[in-house]
Amino acid sequence: MSIHDNILIKIREMKDSLTPVEKMVAEYVLQNVEEIPHLSIKNLAQLTKTSDASVLRFCKTMGYSGYRSFIVSISASLGSMEEQKDQYTDIQPGDDLSVIISNTSRNNIKSIEDTLSVIDKNEVDRAVQVLRKSNRIVFFGIGASGLVGIDAEQKFSRINKMCHTYTDGHSQLTAATLLDKGDVAVFISNSGKTSEILDSLEIAKKSGATIIAITKYNKSELADKANIVLNISTPEVTIRSGAMGSRIAMLTIIDILFAGVASAEYKNVKKYLTKTHNIIAASKHR
């Protein structure tokens, strides 16, 4: 477990994909966080109207070997929450501009911190390796996720990687049809349920390309069908704030992947980074 792991974020994000009995435990834990460290496994089983075995199963689903290590992690999360005291804040009518500036900035910082809690370093490592070996990288995203794909294309192009982003349903279907075995298809979707993305995913799977998903920490069809899953964690999306949190978290994942590939291949890509930097710098002075 890394020091960034926050079990409360994991429970919140995973809750809806748990079994009904585990979900009862999860909901009780989230609603009564403060008292959890003081409860024995028997107490928690009684309070959640489940059994010791169910509580233990829940702990294992969350990645812990036993109840004790789960409790230690809950205590640590409580400690870090005490330090932060920052919750996501939605857009309120008539907010003062200084409040908007600090809330928006804090929400974005929190999205990145929460993503750091759920991201799996081994999956990032696998993603970097397949991107390094790829013949071609194809990014798929709709709406705000499409903008993340465009950012990714701009970055990976700088190190001379063959890549392209497709941001509408029709061009995505065409691109998925033309994928080959040595290609990497990166599907970007916060919910993991975007219909256009899932349609293209079906076709991409048949091509033999490696599928990377960038999606929220939850069970979804996209996460299930991908070869590599890179998770993000953001606040609940609301009508008011839209996809601000998920966009910043996804851009961070792209930055990590780009830095990972560029760093591992630094000898080879240094010349491209220098050339692209110089040409852009020169164009500014014309």
Rank of each mutant, 00 (worst) to 15 (best):
I3R: 11
D5F: 13
L8G: 04
L8A: 10
R12C: 12
D16E: 15
P20H: 09
Q31Y: 09
Q31C: 12
N32C: 15
S40P: 02
K42N: 15
T48L: 08
K49C: 04
T50R: 03
L56K: 13
Y64W: 12
S65R: 14
V72A: 12
S75Q: 11
M81I: 08
E83Q: 06
Q84Y: 05
K85G: 08
D90N: 07
I91P: 01
I91Q: 02
D96Y: 05
S98F: 08
S102I: 07
S111E: 04
T115E: 00
S117R: 08
D120C: 12
V124W: 06
R126M: 03
R136Q: 09
F140Q: 11
G146H: 09
L147Y: 12
K155F: 03
N160Q: 09
K161G: 08
H164T: 10
T174D: 08
T174L: 11
A175Y: 00
A175V: 09
A175I: 05
A176C: 09
L178F: 12
K181Y: 01
D183L: 01
V186C: 08
K193H: 08
S195D: 11
E196F: 10
L198C: 04
D199I: 07
I203E: 02
I211R: 05
D224N: 06
N227E: 13
N231F: 12
T234Q: 14
G245A: 10
I248D: 12
D255V: 10
F258K: 05
V261G: 04
V269C: 01
T276Q: 07
I279D: 15
A282W: 10
S283G: 12
R286D: 01
